[in-house]
């Protein structure tokens, strides 16, 4: 978490209402979530009503309005992964982490998410942890992958 980075992003887009999405994406990337207080600052700097900032932030799946865990675990539920057993994979991930899709644990270790196709269908079902793809996953392999994260 780096206040300076966030301030820099907000300043870069000051007075540019049409750059709202760009600003929020950059803050999300830098900070992994969008605190309400930050959205107030965005609203003020970009001259956009706060409600509209909230609307955009809640509309897109990319934005998180709550803090995320240190590791973002993404189970692809695209069509091919679905046909190739994504449901079993997800069940295992939920069992190992004790989290349902969309949740973050109390120690902020993992955030589990399901999501749209990322186009690596040939190696589905797959698990993506912090952007690293783990292809041709079985529930057993997934457990080993998750256990390798601190």
């Amino acid at each position: 978490m780096c206040e300076k980075d966030i301030d820099g992003i907000i300043e870069k887009y000051r007075g540019q209402p049409s750059s709202l999405i760009h600003a929020l994406v950059e803050i999300q990337h830098a900070n992994h979530w969008l605190p309400r207080e930050v959205m107030h600052r965005v609203a003020e700097a970009l001259e956009v009503p706060f409600a509209q900032v909230m609307q955009i932030a809640s509309f897109y799946k990319t934005f998180s309005l709550t803090p995320k865990g240190r590791h973002e675990v993404h189970v692809c539920t695209g069509m091919t992964c679905h046909l190739r057993g994504a449901a079993k994979l997800l069940a295992k991930v939920e069992e190992v982490t004790g989290l349902k899709a969309g949740e973050t644990d109390a120690e902020s270790k993992f955030t589990v998410e399901t999501g749209a196709c990322l186009g690596s269908c040939s190696i589905g079902p797959e698990l993506i942890v912090d952007g690293k793809h783990y292809g041709r996953m079985t529930p057993e392999k997934a457990e080993a992958v998750l256990n390798s994260y601190e």
């Binding site: 009503p49 706060f50 409600a51 509209q52 909230m54 609307q55 809640s58 509309f59 897109y60």
Partner: peptide, 18 residues
Amino acid sequence: KNAVSFFDNGSVRQIAFV
């Protein structure tokens, strides 16, 4: 005033006051 707005999308879209 934008005191009330849409939130979320698709089948879970809702209105709420800020």
